[in-house]
């Protein structure tokens, strides 16, 4: 019965707001699979928090209601429930190696459509965006090929069509 939901929260860009959201999740024992936050409207002072969470339908409903009652929260959107949406994540991977492994890493990166952002004679930095699950697979493939380090942004998502949140 556990479902994965992508939730977008529009909040006032004020100190403490992220702590409130994170505190809510930890205090009430909800899962955070990923969370990103950034200002999206400097003039209106609004930030957008994108959070991916896991829970039963009842817990997901609680999460949304609990988020919505926070004073600096303007609106809560469950993109998973609201319909088709585009979801993506960005990852940077550092892969170090020489010889065949290095060639193989580059070949797989090419298949996945990853870009090479930097390279030395012994290493690459790949940049890949896409579904979190695809990034996960890419990481798995890079492990035996000399994966040194991963940085992931966590998912961001936006609904399809002409309507905004």
């Amino acid at each position: 019965m556990t479902e994965r939901h992508v939730i977008a929260v529009l909040v006032d860009n004020e100190p403490g707001v992220l702590a409130r959201v994170i505190g809510l999740f930890s205090g009430r024992g909800y899962n955070i699979e990923s969370l990103t936050v950034s200002e999206v409207d400097a003039e209106a002072g609004l930030s957008r928090i994108n959070v991916v969470t896991l829970g039963t339908p009842m817990v997901i409903e609680q999460i949304k209601n609990q988020l919505d009652r926070l004073v600096p929260v303007h609106s809560v959107h469950d993109l998973t429930e609201e319909g088709p949406h585009v979801e993506t994540e960005l990852a940077l991977l550092k892969v170090a190696g020489q010889g065949d492994k290095r060639v193989e890493a580059l070949r797989i990166a090419d298949i996945f459509g990853a870009k090479v952002d930097d390279t030395t004679l012994e290493s690459f930095i790949f940049r890949l965006d896409g579904q979190s699950e695809k990034i996960g697979r890419f990481i798995e493939l890079m492990k035996p090929l000399g994966l040194v380090e991963v940085a992931r942004t966590g998912a961001v998502a936006i609904s399809r069509g002409s309507e905004g949140v």
């Binding site: 609680q62 919505d68 009652r69």
Partner: peptide, 8 residues
């Protein structure tokens, strides 16, 4: 009055 009380 508090939606989070409902279905909790």
């Amino acid at each position: 009055i508090d939606p989070s009380s409902i279905n909790k």
